[in-house]
């Protein structure tokens, strides 16, 4: 009886499992192997590829690569700032939405629109808005007598470029978070709010002491998933800066962009393995971030 049931369970799982194995586990494993190949030529021997052995050199090469460190710096700054800021903003918007029940549906739709829009297309729209001479941002700044900033052009500073990328990334990631928080808020029993009101709590106290703690499991979920998402940033850079990956070539390169650049760079030997080792490093970074978040929150979320 039991084995029969097990068989059935495996059968139900099979479609997803096969897809996962083919498109996730095998590539992951393979990337790990490739990252240790020496002189890997994937197209040699009629596509079977050739190697001359195994080595750690791929890692040491990219760890000495300045562009790689640039990509690490960009990715870290982007992730560490955009994730908490977007969580805070979306939390406030979700709470605000709750207090206008009549217009809530309308605004929810508006806030959700970015989620169903193509990221590259939106990125291009933002690129126009960030244009030095015709952009919306500089127009608004000019109202406050601030001289135009080159956000994304050839003379843009690193800070301006990162600022533009940050604004775009945060804006783009709000939609899903607002959706999740709004539904999370709906699941909080109204009686807690009535009780808090009777307990003389101010709106801010209610937000701080009731809403946030009761949403904390969701906040954890959102912060882990969006941290992973932010560490994989690539679309936004392409959308905003094009294939140049920055105002100056590669100035806004991210880890994934680095991986992609090397994977498609056929100019020297071992390019594939460099890309693979960078990808593995990204994997380890992501893993470490997720572990830190879960351990920290295990201590703080206890309900």
């Amino acid at each position: 009886m039991e084995t029969k049931n097990n068989l059935k369970a495996w059968l139900y799982l099979a479609p997803m499992l096969i897809l996962m194995i083919v498109f996730t586990f095998y590539p992951l494993f393979n990337a790990f192997i490739i990252s240790f190949y020496k002189d890997y030529l994937p197209l040699a021997n009629d596509g079977a590829g050739s190697i001359t052995g195994y080595t750690f050199a791929n890692y040491s090469v990219i760890l000495k690569n300045q562009l790689f460190w640039q990509s690490i710096k960009n990715t870290f700054v982007l992730a560490l700032v955009s994730v908490p800021v977007s969580i805070l903003i979306s939390l406030f918007i979700a709470v605000a939405l709750k207090s206008i029940p009549k217009l809530k549906g309308f605004f929810q739709t508006i806030f959700f629109l970015p989620y169903v829009t193509n990221g590259i297309a939106v990125g291009m729209a933002f690129a126009v808005m960030f244009h030095r001479d015709y952009g919306l941002f500089n127009l608004v700044l000019s109202w406050f007598k601030i001289s135009p900033i080159d956000w994304i052009g050839g003379t843009a500073s690193w800070w301006a470029q990162m600022g533009a990328l940050m604004i775009f990334t945060i804006w783009e990631s709000l939609a899903f978070k607002i959706l999740v928080f709004t539904s999370g808020l709906q699941n909080i029993d109204k009686q807690y709010y009535d009780a808090a009101k009777i307990d003389h709590a101010t709106k801010w106290t209610i937000f701080k002491r009731i809403t946030v703690p009761l949403l904390s499991p969701l906040i954890l979920y959102i912060s882990i998933t969006s941290m992973i998402g932010a560490l994989k940033a690539y679309n936004s850079v392409i959308g905003l800066f094009g294939e140049k990956l920055g105002g100056q070539p590669y100035s806004m390169i991210t880890i994934v962009a680095f991986v992609y650049k090397y994977r498609s760079d056929f100019s020297f030997q071992g390019f594939y393995s460099y890309a693979a080792s960078a990808a593995i490093i990204l994997f380890i970074i992501t893993l470490i971030f997720s572990l830190i978040q879960t351990t920290v929150s295990k201590k703080r979320i206890h309900y």
Binding site: D189, Q191, Y192, D194, A195, R209, L214, S216, H302, Y303
Partner: peptide, 11 residues
């Protein structure tokens, strides 16, 4: 006020 299901803050 004591609510029917107490409304104690669970956290």
């Amino acid at each position: 006020l004591v609510f029917q299901n107490y409304a104690l803050y669970p956290h």
